[in-house]
Structure formats: C-alpha cells, structure tokens
C-alpha cells in the first residue's frame, strides 16, 4: 500500500516538473509564432492595403493554435453588428485566448497596446506601431530563451526529486 502511494507521488511529481518545463519551452515558441503573425499582418497592411478584418482572417489562417484564435476571434467580433470599437474586440480576443498560451503579462501588454493603435492611422504609422511591437516581442523572446535554458532542465529533474523528498519524509 505504501509502495503504491510512493509510486503515485513520484509520478505526480515528475509530471508537474515536466509540465513546468514545457511552459518554459512553449513560451519562446509561441512568442515566435506571434511575431510571425504580426509580420504577416504588417505585410497585409503595408503592402496589400488589405482591410483590417480581412487581414486578421488571413493572418489567422496562416498561424496555428491560440495565436491564430486571437486574430480569428477579433475578426469575428468586428463583423458583429453591436458596434464595438476595434480596441474592445482586440482586448476581448487577446484576454480570452491568453490562458491557453504559455505567454506572460509583458507580451500581453505589448499586444494590448498594439490594439489601441491598429486601424486608426495611416500606413506609415501602422507599420511603425507593428514594428515596435515586433521589437518588444523579440526582446521578450530572447529573455524567454534564456529562461528556457536555465529552468527547463531544472524543472524536469526538480519535479521527480521533490517527489522523492516527499516520499522520504513520509517514510
């Protein structure tokens, strides 16, 4: 009986550790996806003169996972007749999908700031804001990679080790 409990604790601890490690691995990957999506948006706006709802749809189709959902949901909100402003739609979509990502508050505020500028100025201005957001995301991505290097491996073993510690204490 004791042995079974110990095994369960060990499994649980290892899984928690791996999950934490995965968060560190996912964050730079998702930041990269987000940056790609914004680059795509920049192209649509700067060179294609595509209207924003359509540009968002196309960006969503070219990306995957929660990043795609942010763009798709914003576009869906815009089509609705309630008359929400773009900023409201964007905020709603960003916040609703953020829980499904491994990204943190810093990049969320970059995205929310971007939402207050998209669509309401001329082309040069739009490009400037998108580039600024991209630079900020790049900085976050670099930081996230550093953290990944530092903590990913640590968490992988730490979970199992903690479980072993608990088991020893319980014995």
């Amino acid at each position: 009986m004791k042995l079974l409990g110990a095994v369960l604790i060990l499994i649980a601890g290892t899984m928690i550790g791996f999950q934490q490690a995965a968060r560190y691995a996912d964050r730079p990957r998702q930041l990269r996806q987000l940056a790609h999506a914004l680059q795509r948006l920049e192209t649509e706006i700067g060179y294609g003169h595509t209207p924003l709802p359509e540009a968002l749809e196309r960006t969503a189709n070219a990306s995957a996972g929660p990043v795609a959902s942010i763009f798709r949901e914003t576009a869906e909100w815009l089509w609705k007749p309630e008359g929400h402003s773009f900023q409201e739609c964007w905020e709603r979509a960003v916040k609703a999908n953020w829980i499904d990502t491994s990204m943190k508050g810093n990049e969320q505020s970059v995205m929310l700031r971007l939402g207050s500028t998209l669509g309401i100025s001329d082309k040069e201005d739009q490009m400037k804001h998108l580039r600024m957001a991209l630079t900020q995301l790049k900085a976050e991505e670099d930081a996230a990679r550093d953290e990944q290097g530092k903590y990913e491996k640590m968490w992988k073993s730490l979970g199992a080790l903690l479980a072993v510690l608990i088991i020893i204490l319980m014995l």
Partner: peptide
C-alpha cells in the same frame, strides 16, 4: 470622441490606412 472614433472605424472598415486616396 468615443462615438466619433467608432464611426470612423466603421466607415473605414477599421482600415484607415487603406483610405489614403479617400482622405
């Protein structure tokens, strides 16, 4: 100002940047 901004967004299809000629 909020009303005007929403109106502008609607008439430009949220894409003021695509309206250079019109502006």
């Amino acid at each position: 100002a909020e009303h005007c901004r929403k109106l502008l967004e609607r008439i430009t299809n949220y894409s003021l940047y695509a309206m250079e000629e019109e502006l």
